[in-house]
Simulated assay, not measured.
Amino acid sequence: MIVKNITSVSGFLLMGFSDNHELQILHALLFLVTYLFGSAGNFIIINITTLDPQLQSPMYYFLKHLSILDLSSLSVTIPQYIESSLAGSGYISYGQCMLQIFFFSAFTWGELAILTVMSYDRYVAVCLPLHYEVIMSPRKCRWVVTIVWLSSGVPGTLYIATIFSIRFCKAKKIHQFFCDVPQLLKLSCSNDYLVIMAVADFLAATGFACFIGIVISYV
């Protein structure tokens, strides 16, 4: 791995899984295969649910957007890791790191939100079948998906806004293969991380509430 004087530059050094370049190449190939299979599966779901007229119900409409979000979240982190592993350098600029945090947080939140919506859709289909067409009308489904996509930008925006207030006084080495908020907190000085911890706690509580809603609806 090409190690720069990482304390004097604006970027970070992603440590990944190994310092051995041969192992880095092996990891890159494994990630590439996983990424291609994951992308292919999501593309198939997106195409089928878009083109097949028999798969135009709300369940498949939500499934299509879940696949889009899943494909997007994979594309935020894995290609960059593959490129840096093959090049033998884990360096990532500050701007790239912030963009990675924003989009990864956004797409991950979007997946949780759409899963919550899908669980409600199944609840209505099973428990309120006579009212299903009214409750889950195409217009309402489009509005719900729009809200999911718009709300997905909230976590990323909160994280980025609070990260800008952090001063990094330690070696900028991130022991992860992508820019991860908990790893960034380890590089902060004194109590700079308290605000971002409050944001993380708020998002964790909201995510847990969505999880409880999913469990209750399926039960």
Rank of each mutant, 00 (worst) to 15 (best):
A209H: 09
S67C: 04
L203A: 02
Q100I: 04
V9E: 14
V219K: 00
R142H: 13
V199L: 01
L23D: 09
G38K: 09
S217C: 15
V215G: 07
H21I: 13
M136C: 06
F103P: 01
I68L: 10
E83M: 10
K170S: 03
F103D: 01
M1W: 05
F12M: 12
L55M: 04
D180P: 11
T162Y: 07
T50V: 06
D180I: 05
I6Q: 06
T108F: 14
K186M: 10
I2C: 04
F208L: 05
C179W: 07
P138T: 10
V134T: 05
K172D: 00
T49A: 08
F102G: 00
S57L: 07
Y35Q: 05
S84Y: 07
I114H: 01
T7G: 14
K170A: 00
T206K: 07
Q183C: 15
S165G: 03
Y60A: 04
F107I: 01
F168M: 15
V148P: 01
Q100C: 12
S10W: 06
L36P: 01
L194T: 02
Y120P: 08
F62G: 03
S190P: 02
A40T: 02
M197Y: 12
S152F: 06
F31E: 06
F104N: 12
A125T: 14
T146H: 08
S85I: 08
A161I: 03
G88I: 02
R142I: 07
L128D: 13
K4R: 11
E22T: 15
I46G: 08
A106G: 13
V195P: 00
R139T: 10
S105F: 08
H175F: 15
M1Q: 06
L130Y: 14
P138L: 10
L13D: 00
I216R: 06
C169T: 15
Q176I: 10
A125L: 08
I212N: 12
D180L: 11
T157L: 09
A106K: 00
R142F: 12
L128P: 04
L55V: 07
S119H: 02
L158Q: 00
L158G: 04
S165C: 10
L150V: 08
Q176R: 13
D180R: 13
D180A: 14
H65D: 01
S137N: 12
F177N: 14
S72P: 02
E133V: 13
G213F: 15
L13G: 02
A28T: 04
K186Y: 11
Q96P: 08
V3S: 10
A200K: 01
Q96R: 14
V154F: 02
D201W: 15
T162F: 06
H21S: 14
I45E: 05
I114G: 01
Q176D: 12
L55Q: 05
F17C: 12
I45F: 03
M98T: 11
H21D: 12
E133M: 14
K64M: 01
M59C: 14
V219I: 11
L128S: 13
N42M: 11
L66K: 02
F31I: 02
L29R: 02
A161D: 11
T116C: 12
F37Q: 03
P58F: 00
M1L: 07
T162G: 08
L36M: 09
D180Q: 15
F107V: 12
G41M: 07
M118Q: 11
F208V: 12
P79M: 14
Y218K: 09
V199N: 00
G41H: 06
I163E: 02
R167E: 15
L99I: 09
C169M: 15
C189H: 04
S152N: 05
F17D: 12
Y123N: 04
Q54I: 13
A200G: 03
